[in-house]
Design a protein around this nucleic acid. Structure first.
Lengths: 112, 112
DNA sequence: TTATCATATGAATAATTGTTCATATGAAAG
DNA sequence: CTTTCATATGAACAATTATTCATATGATAA
């Protein structure tokens, strides 16, 4: 990738300087990837309403316990959900307001 | 998936009623999926600064013209970018403010 | 301690997806 | 019209990923 064919050198330089660093952009993309799956979006939406245990989430979404649990792990790893134990159940809930803000931003784009 | 083992029937019912419809959630997930790739996030970030032609985007990101073009097509299909011709070049730019709002929401979560 | 039950997890599979390479397209310049 | 050049696109490949099935874990209840 040489520079011989660059059309607008100034623009390229300006943009190169303005780009957030590689690693942050990678993390941002990874974060959006978590939102980029129907099952996880449904889990997130469900948790806007109430904290829920794994089996109830599965029943609500019509999916297996295992599938939900795998997806919850991804949400956990991304620090989007937190959980607590109550008796035999693990109750999951959203970790912070950012989740709602991110969801809403995307949701707005779709419904408009 | 029967209801025999549901732990909190009321919660399940409340959440079932509150969930946005299936199709909208699917579209929301599809939208976030577009943001969930490093290359596309970089393209989006670059276009925050200036409209750019395909080759300059490729040069800026250190990628091939073909890879960028393929990703621009995905951004185009999602109505996130628009474009115009100027001479031999196609100049791409962001289609609306939602793009920035969505990006910012995710970016905030990462840097905090 | 033992049995039970909700949840977690590993392996396997199918599907999706990003990049490359080769080539097509189509507007502009000659 | 013909050539050139920027961009677009199709096919192929490798990598990633969501779900399923089977089973492990570990807290609770007995």
């Amino acid at each position: 990738m040489d520079n011989l064919n660059i059309v607008n050198q100034e623009t390229v330089e300006k943009v190169r300087e303005s780009l957030p660093n590689e690693e942050i952009l990678y993390d941002v993309a990874e974060l959006f990837k978590v939102f980029g799956d129907s099952t996880r979006i449904k889990i997130i939406c469900a948790l806007f309403e109430a904290e829920m245990c794994v089996y109830d989430l599965a029943a609500t979404l019509g999916m297996t316990q295992s599938a939900i649990s795998h997806q919850l792990r991804i949400l956990k790893n991304s620090k989007l959900v937190k959980f607590r134990r109550d008796g035999k159940q693990m109750y999951y809930s959203l970790d912070d307001d950012h989740v709602k803000q991110i969801f809403d931003a995307g949701y707005k784009h779709i419904i408009e």
